[in-house]
Design a protein around this nucleic acid. Structure first.
Lengths: 338, 338
DNA sequence: GTATAAGTTGGAAGCGCTTCCAGCATCCTG
DNA sequence: CAGGATGCTGGAAGCGCTTCCAACTTATAC
């Protein structure tokens, strides 16, 4: 109740001007302590809370940032990755007094409908956009708008964009190298959706590791799993006839699928086929055997993304910022190294 | 670019008043077709987009609704349930031209900090709040505020609240009854966090099914799993010494844990112990054997929650609305009925 | 052809806040 | 104690839009 209270009314009751009342609400200087106390008392007594929209309009900042998940990316909301990322981002927003607006753009129509709202300065002080599929032009449009934007994940073009990513190449390379050191030499790979840079980069890391050991990259040992569990299952089925002795999976979820495919084929992990995957999210420890996997710091990634955005909001988008976060290998059971 | 454009400027360029320009933007009647066309042309040429915050302030509605996940609930963001729910809610928001603000209140401090923002009419036109633990007073405070609010899940008190829930009692009863019909008579239960109504209601359904078959409820066969996979694992370990011949798990995630515990004890599902769980989310089909489980329509639930909220926003909160959605049993491998 | 209704337009008053700026009181410095 | 620096205060002008209302134009009916 009592929400029809306005700043004017508070000022009147405290016997000061609206300007002064505004000053104490925003913790600004130049108010005598006793006056400040008086105003604060009135605010406390009345339960007054400023109207956020009016504040936004007058101050030209909304204290709201948007998280944009483009078309098709949303399918991955089944993957534990996005919830985790969202959690990190939400956490950072809370800590910095920002409100988070979530845009799950599930269709082309959604994109069209929301683009004007999003790209228009006003509602949002800034945007974190998840990279989608290559060729997706939403990022380009957003970067061209006047809303501060940072990209989560490496955008393929747009080298002028500020972005944050994990070191997918090095991470993948580490995982594959581990398998090589265990003596495997027919290492297959289940890739993610190859229209994403994350999938491409992990594939690159896989190739680099093989090449560093003077092994050829055999196309027959590579299959696309689209980052889904069922995709991993099917990819593994395609790989089995080529007798790999180890598999590097670009995500935990796909590794889970691969595990089932291997099991259904009457083979066991890690005895017949060793597995290393990527993510270190809940599926990694739910799986039996538990997955040896390349850990990426998803939560911290989200936090950093927000902090980068706030920096861009505050200090402008030039020069473009860039953060590449490290990964590390977590050794469990599926690689058989114990 | 060109975002410093205002309605005034559009009106000037089209040779009309700001009022008329506003009319065509909001698709209101009482504008001559030719004038309307002229204004629309100017808008198209300039790429003008209205300032959403200014619209909100003037019209007294923001077209933003909030999804509030209270303290501790957020931990369950690991569970696929919340991401799925969020997706349904986001979908409905998109379809109805609303923007979704996400509040993951992870700590008491977060709650304190955001309560004023949330409960104050202005930023949010309405709120969907997920029920948290019993005793949580955030719901009470929100319901007492003047922001339209609907609750997702059955609130324990607050019988005046509008809420939506699935029929947990009937769903659980159906699942347990299925086990009874298969001839099991030492059916244990792994409950969720008993400080939530969902856990309580599923427990009630379990009891009802047993009683309908004149079987006693044996406390030794009941163990709390807190809705997590690890919790399910530990609960199952506690149950094993009491030799259950079947288990009803209040969630898929906990069933996964139970599966592992049973396996680690050298027993097999469904041969030694049959399992029926609740949710029918991705873990149900990822598990081996695949889970027989009570399906709840999470996505549709989210959609309905938003639609209920929009109804409340439009038509007032009295009388309180109430929707109870049906569940149905999905038979797979873990119950051994095939 | 006139009275009346219906449709069209713009002026002006907000929505509830921030912030520039000018005015005044108070403080220091020597 | 003069004079400049500093701190405090409020008036007024916005921020960019919606909407009430009065005025005016055009269609309709008899």
């Amino acid at each position: 109740m009592s929400n029809t209270l306005t700043l004017d009314e508070i000022a009147r009751r405290a016997g000061v001007s609206r300007t002064t009342a505004s000053r104490v609400i925003n913790d600004r200087p130049n108010v005598r302590p006793e006056v400040r106390a008086r105003v604060q008392r009135v605010i406390a007594e009345t339960g007054y809370r400023p109207h956020p929209v009016a504040q936004s309009l007058a101050s030209q900042q909304s204290h709201v940032i948007g998280l944009v998940l483009p078309r098709r990316t949303e399918a991955l909301f089944n993957d534990p990755y996005f919830p985790r990322l969202t959690q990190g981002i939400a956490q950072a927003c809370n800590d910095h007094d920002y409100t988070l607006a979530l845009f799950l753009l599930q269709t082309e129509a959604d994109e069209q409908k929301f683009y004007p709202r999003i790209s228009r300065r006003g509602l949002l002080d800034g945007i974190v956009i998840q990279v989608g599929q290559i060729g997706d032009n939403l990022i380009a449009r957003l970067l061209a708008s006047d809303v501060p934007t940072v990209v989560a994940g490496r955008p393929l073009h747009h080298s002028d964009a500020s972005y944050i990513d994990v070191d997918n190449v090095a991470g993948a390379s580490t995982g594959v190298t581990h398998l090589l050191q265990l003596g495997h030499n027919r290492i297959g790979m289940i890739t993610g959706d190859m229209r994403t840079t994350a999938a491409l980069d992990r594939y690159t890391g896989y190739c680099q590791a093989l090449q560093a050991h003077d092994l050829p990259v055999d196309e027959a040992l590579i299959s696309e799993g689209y980052f889904t569990e069922i995709g991993g299952y099917e990819a593994m089925q395609r790989l089995l006839p080529h007798k790999p002795d180890a598999i590097f999976s670009a995500s935990d979820a796909m590794a889970l699928g691969a595990l089932h495919a291997i099991h259904d084929a009457g083979l066991t992990v890690p005895h017949d086929i060793a597995i290393v995957s990527f993510d270190d999210l809940p599926p990694a420890t739910i799986a039996r055997p538990q997955l040896t996997t390349v850990h990426q710091p998803v939560h911290a990634f989200g936090v950093k993304a927000v902090e980068m955005l706030l920096d861009v909001i505050k200090n402008g988008s030039t020069p473009p910022r860039r953060i590449i976060m490290d990964t590390h290998l977590v050794i469990r059971e599926s690689c058989g190294s114990t």
